[in-house]
């Protein structure tokens, strides 16, 4: 079997298309989250996704249809708790995250214990992604990337200096809401790729790798997207040939790029 023969399989093609779209999406959003020191919001929202999917399974509904609105609501709740209740952002993430997980566990228990479906969402299985989910990933990715393109200057300015952005007449609370809502949608999409446990890696690793050598924000975003796509390609190929879990392999490929960028910076300068 030659090196690219695995591309002939339909499930691999679907995994590559969905994986590439979602990876680019997460890398770009993740850059803004990392720069705003909100990296762990991905983790928190992933835990809310767990609860939301459990809710969907409990009522026999399509889990993503339940997860998207619930996780967007969770992201809004994180913002509001940190704004209004005088709770630090990381503590607000912790609160919503814990409630999400606890809700999921309760529902799983009420339904008679963990079933296989819920377990598969924890660790992801991009190779089992359906055509509908691929189409959903493409449409939502394009929508989210389009929103980032249209609000690029606002998101950039608010990330660099939120106070100045406000004095420029930008409505930063709306920008923050937009950013976390887009993150919520991306997190739900990523569940299929790497699973709930590893989602934050897709958001954080490509961004921090690109930041090791970036010379402008635009270049950093391009580099992060590049690392993310390469990691998906490498991860799917390696997992196919070495019979490894795909989500974890994608994350390890991302981590390898980060390690290489660190070493390069350390020994060759950047």
């Amino acid at each position: 079997m030659d090196i690219v023969s695995f591309l002939q399989f339909t499930f691999i093609q679907r995994a590559l298309v969905a994986g590439i779209f979602i990876a680019v999406l997460c890398a770009i959003l993740g850059m803004f989250l990392v720069l705003r020191r909100m990296s762990l919001i991905g983790d928190g929202l992933a835990h809310v996704t767990f609860g939301a999917i459990a809710l969907g399974l409990f009522f026999g509904m399509y889990p993503f249809a339940v997860a998207v609105p619930l996780v967007v609501a969770g992201s809004y709740l994180i913002l509001k708790i940190s704004e209004k209740a005088k709770v630090y952002g990381d503590a607000a993430i912790g609160i919503v995250s814990a409630v999400g997980i606890a809700g999921g566990i309760l529902l799983a228990s009420l339904s008679g214990g963990f079933n296989v479906d819920l377990f598969s969402y924890l660790f992801g299985n991009i190779l089992a992604i359906s055509s509908t989910e691929v189409a959903l990933s493409i449409v939502l990715s394009i929508t989210v990337l389009g929103a980032i393109y249209l609000f690029y200057q606002e998101i950039f300015a608010a990330a660099f200096d939120e106070e100045f952005a406000r004095v420029s007449g930008l409505r930063t609370s709306r920008i923050n809401t937009l950013l976390v809502s887009l993150t919520a949608v991306s997190v739900v999409l990523s569940v299929r790729v790497v699973g709930i446990m590893l989602i934050s890696a897709l958001l954080i690793l490509p961004a921090v790798t690109a930041l090791q050598h970036a010379r402008s924000l635009a270049r950093a975003l391009l580099a992060a997207a590049g690392y993310a796509v390469l990691s998906v390609l490498l991860g799917i190929a390696l997992s196919f040939y070495a019979d490894l879990p795909t989500g974890a392999t994608i994350v390890m490929a991302n981590a390898a790029f980060f390690g290489t960028a660190l070493l390069y910076k350390r020994f060759a300068g950047s």
């Binding site: 950039f156 990330a159 660099f160 010379r215 924000l217 270049r219």
Partner: peptide, 8 residues
């Protein structure tokens, strides 16, 4: 100013 922020 975030020392990691790649803004020119």
């Amino acid at each position: 100013i975030n020392p990691l922020f790649p803004a020119t």
